[in-house]
């Protein structure tokens, strides 16, 4: 056998082995993707199935219009908690969006290099703080602080929930905005500078509009996170089921309600809790879809 034919056989053997490895890898990846997709579907199906008796026996109208939440007495008014959830979430977004975008603009356009790198590190750390720690801090520091200014004389309130959620979502909004600004081509920035635009105009008139899609996507995804946040909110909101009339009123969110009552709920009560879970899931899913639609548009425009 000539050396060259040995080489050929080696090469064929190599090729075959590569093909086998490729096939195995592909199968493994398919499994992983399949499992992830299946988990989501199974959870969705499970929640929907558990919620079904609640929807069937109580109905959406009564869930929204019953005068009180006394699930053991057959009164299922969830509207105050839905309002509490939405109020806490959108209050937080109203604070987070300008603060997050503002801090990212500061980082990218105004901060001296060294300050910017330290600041970015700190924000990254803040994004990694577990929610229960935020909750502890809320109970120990934030709530007493609010109590000193509250007409009700107590700190656990919608305001405390809004502020805690703001603090939890702010770092991530700042980081996603920072990344969106960084993704604006340097040529765009140089072009703006070459037109004699001031730093303020470059930031707010040129770069931020160009980064808009990425910024909005980040804010929307954090809105979803705020909607679903449970632990910290449970710890600082006071958990009284009522429609808030001022930011100092204690509220109970849907997430807190599930966490508080699932331990002892049964039958219809339990099913109704699953309905609230389903509502949260749909809200978050809706937000994710909106974020994706915006993302897709960005890809097409540029």
């Amino acid at each position: 056998m000539s050396p060259s034919s040995t080489d050929t056989i080696d090469a064929t053997r190599h090729a075959r082995r590569r093909r086998v490895i490729d096939a195995l890898l592909l199968a493994a990846l398919r499994c992983a993707a399949g499992v992830s997709a299946a988990v989501v579907l199974v959870i969705a199906w499970f929640v929907a199935a558990e919620a079904w008796p609640g929807l069937r026996d109580v109905g959406v109208t009564r869930l929204l219009t019953d005068d009180a939440w006394r699930p053991t007495a057959g009164r299922y008014g969830m509207a105050p908690m839905l309002i509490g959830t939405l109020a806490a979430t959108f209050g937080a977004v109203l604070l987070t969006a300008p603060l997050g975008v503002g801090s990212a603009v500061f980082l990218r356009f105004y901060a001296p290099r060294r300050v910017a790198s330290v600041y970015r590190r700190v924000v990254e750390l803040l994004a990694g703080v577990p929610s229960v720690v935020f909750g502890l801090w809320g109970i120990a520091v934030l709530a007493p602080l609010i109590a000193t200014v509250s007409p009700l004389g107590q700190g656990q309130s919608l305001l405390a929930g809004v502020l805690i959620l703001t603090m939890m979502t702010l770092p991530t909004v700042a980081l996603t905005t920072d990344a969106a600004i960084a993704a604006v081509p340097a040529d765009t920035r140089r072009g703006a500078a070459a037109l004699g635009l001031s730093r303020r105009a470059i930031a707010w008139r040129v770069v931020i509009p160009a980064a808009r899609a990425g910024i909005v996507t980040g804010v929307i995804l954090q809105t979803g996170r705020a909607l679903g946040e449970t632990m910290a909110v449970l710890m600082v909101c006071g958990n009284i089921v009522q429609t808030p009339h001022s930011v100092f009123d204690p509220v109970r969110t849907l997430t807190a309600n599930i966490a508080l009552e699932m331990g002892y709920a049964d039958d219809r009560h339990r099913a109704v809790l699953f309905v609230s879970g389903l509502v949260l899931m749909l809200l978050v899913a809706g937000l994710v879809l909106i974020a994706e639609a915006i993302d897709r548009r960005r890809v097409h425009v540029t």
């Binding site: 040529d187 765009t188 070459a194 160009a210």
Partner: peptide
Amino acid sequence: RVGMIFQRPNPFA
């Protein structure tokens, strides 16, 4: 007063 044109067109979005 001193405008500049770049190698790659860089219109704003």
